[in-house]
Computed example of a mutant assay.
Amino acid sequence: MTPPKQPDSAATAQGPGAPAPKAPGLRERKKARTKAAIQREAVRLFREQGYAATTVEQVAEAAEVAPSTVFRYFATKQDLVFTQEYELPFATLLQAQAPDLTPVQAERRAIGSMLADLSDEELALQRERWLLITSEPELWGAGLAGITRSMRVMAEQVAKRAGLDPEAPPVRAYTGAVFGVLLQVSLDWASSPDMDFAATLDAALECLEDIRP
């Protein structure tokens, strides 16, 4: 099942009558393309050669940039796998949803909007990142820190909508249930490349509809 029909998330987030967000300039777009190319080549090499066996210099050569450029965008080698900027867009999209929606409906719309904005190439890269994280013990251990951070962000946003404390047991239980679904669907996706990730995730999240924080 697909997510409920979504309003224009940008307009909703900005509020009625607010000016449209300014489009990124040429310089910002070029930087974003460079960063994406570096991470894409890094993930490819890590998958082909192994994470430990691949050097930052090899990543730089594959991306046709200097090693110093790699470190300008990614402070550490691990950041080549983990650096993503999802928390703020998710928080913005979740708070933009209508207040009369159930928590799961709001989550489905926010996550659906984020996935809809990804190109096929970007979505394929996310799957490759996930395969890499689950196959490399060093990365899996490091990935738990990112999962913990993302759970905290989700708990804060859910609590804000519900008028509760982020540490309240209902909020923690709800967030844990949502992340359990996200983890299970992601693991299934890793072994089933033809899976429609967005549709499968949405249908799984819908099963949580009766859970309330």
Rank of each mutant, 00 (worst) to 15 (best):
T2I: 11
K5N: 13
K5F: 15
Q6F: 06
S9N: 12
A10E: 14
T12V: 13
T12E: 08
A13R: 04
A13D: 03
A13N: 04
G15N: 06
A18Q: 05
A20P: 02
K22C: 08
P24S: 03
P24K: 08
R27S: 13
R27K: 13
K31F: 12
K31W: 11
R33K: 11
T34D: 06
T34Y: 02
K35Q: 15
A36I: 05
Q39N: 09
R40G: 01
R40E: 10
R44G: 06
R47C: 07
E48T: 07
E48P: 03
A53Y: 03
V56F: 01
V56L: 05
E61P: 07
E64Q: 15
V65L: 02
P67D: 01
S68Q: 12
S68D: 10
R72I: 02
R72S: 10
F74S: 00
Q78G: 06
D79G: 14
D79E: 08
Q84F: 11
Y86V: 15
Y86A: 14
L88N: 11
P89M: 04
F90E: 08
A91E: 05
L94Q: 00
Q95R: 15
Q97P: 04
Q97A: 04
D100V: 14
T102R: 12
Q105M: 07
R108N: 11
A110P: 04
G112R: 07
A116V: 14
A116Y: 01
S119H: 07
E122L: 05
A124Q: 07
R127Y: 00
E128L: 04
E128M: 05
R129P: 00
L131W: 01
I133V: 15
T134P: 10
T134Y: 05
E136D: 05
G143L: 06
S150N: 11
V153W: 04
A155D: 04
E156K: 00
Q157Y: 09
A159N: 03
G163K: 10
G163I: 02
L164N: 07
P170M: 00
V171E: 01
R172W: 04
A173E: 13
A173C: 12
Y174A: 04
Y174S: 05
A177K: 14
F179Q: 07
L183Q: 15
Q184I: 12
S186E: 11
S186C: 10
D188G: 12
W189L: 10
A190G: 13
D194L: 09
M195R: 13
A199H: 06
T200V: 06
A203P: 01
L205C: 08
L205H: 09
L208R: 01
L208K: 05
L208F: 02
P213G: 10
